[in-house]
Design a protein around this nucleic acid. Structure first.
Lengths: 356, 356
DNA sequence: CAGAATTTTTGTATCGGTTCAAATTTCGCT
DNA sequence: AGCGAAATTTGAACCGATACAAAAATTCTG
């Protein structure tokens, strides 16, 4: 038959039609082993005949309380999760882990301020993983109100406040990156920066960097400078160029970088994304990488390994970050304070000793 | 204060503490405009003081019934959504639309058969968008049982059965692609195929293609052949090479393709992904694209527009597909039968007249 | 075969809100 | 002050399941 009437069928209806109590009917679906085979089959048959869609998730949920899903929220439109290489890399690892635990992944957008509240408050998840917390105090605040476990990723300033967070050591990572190119013999460096404050692009000075809103960018700059200082290179000889982390602004800034007489032989890029835009620009401008200019990125996104040439970069331990983040949100063990992991230097094809 | 006792605070507790009825307390949160300012503020204050986390989503849900989220399911591990270019493109558009409607996106994995049931049955969504339905009869079956609106994408064989589906016209699309290169003067073509049956890679014959499991691949081959026939080219002169849609098998198959004496001057690739692997292989083998060999892809993924050289391809109307899919699952208007859209030829840099 | 032990089944409380008709209060006017 | 209309508030029903203690049925022991 498999007919359904106007109103949708409830467990209660099935129980009544099968002549058993609602408790038994419930067991047929959620603990089949506890009910007698004969009865189970009968109830199942009746259910099918009635067109019962199975226990409503909501009803079950209400009683049990566990959704078995993590929410991932970013102060970005949802498409960010699929477009940005870093986010994508992270999401790949997060979903891999959730998959293994049989948990779901829900994407929550925190794009507009008005909807942010609602989206976070109404997301059906057991906990949150927050991205891009720089400038996202509001997101953290609202998430905290929800009183579910959460953990912030890609933090920086979060360190000071008591926000559970997992991130990489940007200062050390950047230092190692700079040490690598300096070790190859480079002396004329340039820093290609991710966003420092809002929406600017172009050459900036040290004071501006120190006053940056985005602490991860600031920390990376700091790391680069530390390595230069240790090698006796005057940091003022290494100009800092801020990008908006898109192709247009990066290319514009590259043109600026190579317009003057003092051109760098190595570029320290704060993300693989802009590093790859830079390599692209260099290639189009007739320069070869790494022969004319070396480039080192940061993040270790999958694309960096398949690009042509393959990008030398500082690889973030994404698997580990994802594992801990999911564990913290689903496993109940809330992260205490800030956990800092180290990035790893991966030497590939975009760095070599300078020509001269 | 903001203390919370052992048990978590419920709306009822807040109401009692504030000395109002539960109904009023509920209104304070869900229909603030209906309650007197004075009362509202008082209740809010009490709630804050008690550390109330706001109305539980589950409770609300149970009464209202709408989750306001779409579930996207594929017979693939969850990481597929972030790794495969086509899936990523689709997800980008889907999330864009959901974002605009203020809806959430839940990823549900249908990786293993055992968990598939559970994942689909327990996903908290208002409807499903199904990917990769080829060979996914089971997924469709289980989704149907859930009795929520759903729509299948990237179908093919689905057409015959009464599954609501949205897809592109693979035959026509492929025909247009082949007509393009034939129109440029190419006569020696080769077909680089996506999966036809399970897990094989290498040259295959026409009978094998006709018996393919994956109907979208079969249809594309059919389209290519139609164009050849119309142009008076014997289809048997165009070998078909099946790949596993990964880099390794595509490169292996390319080596096979260019091993003999009769080498093609144009390659008809069934997806941008393998087309780009092919271009990559050609480049590494010392050939230039499109001067030595032309390549045309299929799908129109974002990467195809930024690759070097930019890929000529058949672009699927992803925005429209996503719009309709979301509309069908959230908007209540269930898709009737199969909706077929047309792919659009986008000529870029990988096709040109043959050298000779 | 009585009585104990075990397996099934039942009935009802509970999860945490929203809804809506009815009751109450407040307000505007004469 | 008196009265009807409008604005608020109340209280109980309800959403759809699961949990659990108690009751009933069945099986096992000596």
């Amino acid at each position: 038959m498999t007919r359904q009437g106007e109103a949708s069928i409830r467990l209660k209806d099935v129980a009544k039609a099968a002549g058993v109590s609602q408790g038994t009917a419930s067991n047929v679906f959620s603990k089949p082993e506890v009910v007698r085979d004969e009865v189970r089959e009968h109830v199942l048959a009746v259910a099918k005949d009635l067109g019962y869609a199975g226990p409503s998730v909501t009803g079950r949920l209400l009683r049990q309380g566990k959704v078995n899903a993590v929410g991932v929220a970013a102060i970005e439109p949802l498409r960010y999760f699929f477009e940005d290489p870093w986010a994508r890399h992270l999401m790949t690892e997060i979903s891999e882990i959730c998959d293994a635990r049989g948990a779901g992944v829900a994407l929550v957008s925190a794009r507009s301020d008005e909807r942010l509240d609602w989206n976070v408050q109404s997301a059906l998840v057991d906990g949150f993983i927050l991205l891009c917390v720089e400038g996202g105090e509001r997101l953290v605040e609202i998430t905290r109100q929800r009183q579910l476990p959460f953990v912030a990723l890609a933090i920086g300033a979060a360190a000071a406040r008591d926000i559970p967070a997992i991130g990489v050591d940007n200062i050390t990572g950047a230092r190692v990156a700079a040490e690598h190119v300096i070790g190859l013999g480079h002396r004329r460096l340039a820093i290609l920066s991710a966003m420092l404050s809002h929406g600017n692009a172009g050459r900036v000075d040290a004071d501006y960097v120190r006053a940056a809103t985005y602490s991860s960018s600031r920390d990376r700059a700091r790391g680069y400078w530390q390595a230069m200082e240790a090698a006796g290179i005057d940091r003022s000889t290494a100009p800092v160029f801020e990008t908006r982390e898109d192709e247009a602004s990066t290319h514009a800034v590259m043109a600026e970088m190579f317009a003057g007489p003092e051109q760098p032989t190595a570029i320290l890029a704060m993300s693989d994304k802009i590093a790859m835009y830079a390599v692209d620009w260099l290639f189009r401008s007739g320069r070869t990488v790494p022969d004319d200019v070396s480039v080192i990125g940061f993040d270790g996104v999958p694309e960096s390994a398949v690009a042509t040439p393959k990008l030398t970069t500082m690889e973030q331990p994404m698997k580990e970050i994802a594992r801990r983040a999911v564990e913290a949100t689903l496993g109940g063990r809330q992260v205490e304070g800030k956990q800092v992991l180290q990035a790893r230097l991966v030497v590939r094809e975009t760095t070599s000793p300078p020509k001269a």
